[in-house]
Write a protein that binds this DNA or RNA. Structure first.
Lengths: 201, 201
DNA sequence: TCAATACTACCTACCGGTCGGTAGCTTTTC
DNA sequence: GAAAAGCTACCGACCGGTAGGTAGTATTGA
C-alpha cells in the first residue's frame, strides 16, 4: 500500500486536484488532466487504475493536507475563543489550498459511486476536528463545564464551521468576515455564560 | 414572460425537479426526464427551449415555492426565538419538498453556465429571509436593539440557517436535531443578553 | 383546417477506457 | 562486455456508450 510517488504521478495528482476542485468529479475530464500533466490520456493509466482511483488518491492527499492544517491551528493557543485560530484561518486557507477547495467542493455532494468511501474519510476528519475543539473548550472553560454543555458547544461549533465553509464557497470575502465576526459573538456570549458556571437547561 | 403552463409542461417540470434534485444539472438526463413525464426526449423541445431553460424554469418554481414556505413560517409567531419556526420546520420541509432539495443541491455549486442567473435568484431570496428575521428580531427584543446588533444577529442567523441546510444534506436526522438544539442555545444566550440591554462591543 | 404536440431517426461531440505498439533504460545471461 | 530479454512510460487510434440537440413527419384536437 505504501506506493512510491514518482514525479510524473505527482504532476498527475496536481493537475487532477485542480480539475476536480474546479469542475467536480463528473465535470473533470481525464484528457484535460493528462494534458495539464504533460502526457496523453492513455498514459494516465500507467499511473492510476482509473478515474475513481485517481479521485480517491487526490482525496487522501487532501484529507491529510487539511488534517495537518487543522492540527497546526489547534497547536497554537487561541487568542480569545476555543477553535478561533481554525475559523480565522479559513479564508486564507481557501485562497491558498487547492486541496481545501477540492474537499469543500466534494464534501456535501460527493460523486455517487464513491459515496461511502468518501463519507468515511470525512467522518473521521470531522471527528478529529470535534475532539480538538472539545479539548480546547475544556481548557478554556475549566472544570465547571458539564459533559452535556461540552457536547452542545461541540455541535454548535461544528455547525459554525460548516457555516463558514459554506460562506467560503458562495458568498464573498466581506460577508465571510461579517459572518465570522457575528458567530464569534454568539460563541463568546455562550462561553462567557458557561464560564460563569451557568448551565444550559 | 407569463407563459401558460399546460398539464404536459407541468409533468415535465415535475419530472425535471426530481432528476435535478437527485443528480444535479449535469448528472440529470433529458431522456430520463422525458420518460418520467411520459414522452420522448425530442418532444421535450415542444415545451422548453433547451436544458438550460428547463433548469431555469424549475429554479423559478423552486424559488417561489420556498419563498412561500419561508413567508408562512414567519407569519406564525415564533414560540421562543425569532426565526425559530423556519429552522424547526426545515427537517420536515427537506423530507417533503422536492423543490427544497433541488435548491439545496444547486445552491452551493451551481452549474457553471447558469451561475450568474442563479446567483441573482438566490441573492434576493436570502435578502428576503434576512429581512424577515430582522423584523422578527426587532419585535422580540424591542427598542433596546441597536442597528449594529441587529446586523450582527442577522449575519449569525443566516450562518445558522446555512449550517442547518448543510446538516440536512450530509448528516443524518439525529445530528440535525442536535445541531439545531445547540445553535438555538447560542442564539438564546445572545438574545437574552441583548434583551437585558447589553450591547456587543 | 391548422397549429400544437408527439414521434422516429439521426447528428455531432465527448466521455472513460482499451488496444497494439514503441522508445529507452535495466537487468539478466552467456 | 555485449547481446538478449524485460520493464516502464508513453503514444495514436479506436471502442461502446451517452449526452444534448435537430430534421422531418405523423397524430391530435379545437
Amino acid at each position: 500500500m505504501a506506493s512510491t510517488t514518482t514525479p510524473a504521478l505527482k504532476r498527475v495528482l496536481n493537475a487532477a486536484v485542480v480539475q476536480f476542485a474546479r469542475h467536480g468529479y463528473e465535470g473533470a475530464s481525464l484528457s484535460v488532466i493528462a494534458a495539464d500533466a504533460g502526457i496523453r490520456k492513455a498514459s494516465l493509466y500507467s499511473h492510476v487504475k482509473n478515474k475513481d482511483a485517481l479521485f480517491m488518491a487526490v482525496f487522501e492527499d487532501a484529507l491529510h493536507s487539511e488534517a495537518r492544517f487543522a492540527r497546526d491551528c489547534f497547536a497554537r493557543p487561541d487568542p480569545k475563543l476555543p477553535g478561533q485560530n481554525y475559523c480565522a484561518s479559513l479564508l486564507a486557507r481557501y485562497a491558498d489550498s487547492e486541496h481545501f477547495r477540492f474537499l469543500l467542493r466534494t464534501a456535501y455532494i460527493p460523486p455517487e459511486p464513491l459515496f461511502h468511501e468518501l463519507q468515511e474519510g470525512y467522518e473521521t476528519y470531522m471527528q478529529q476536528l470535534l475532539a480538538d475543539f472539545t479539548t480546547a473548550l475544556r481548557r478554556h472553560v475549566g472544570d465547571a463545564l458539564s459533559d452535556r454543555d461540552a457536547e452542545i458547544m461541540g455541535h454548535a461549533w461544528m455547525g459554525m464551521v460548516d457555516s463558514l465553509h459554506v460562506a467560503l464557497i458562495y458568498i464573498g470575502q466581506a460577508r465571510f468576515e461579517a459572518r465570522l465576526n457575528a458567530l464569534e459573538h454568539l460563541m463568546s456570549d455562550s462561553i462567557a455564560r458557561l464560564a460563569r458556571g451557568e448551565r444550559h437547561d
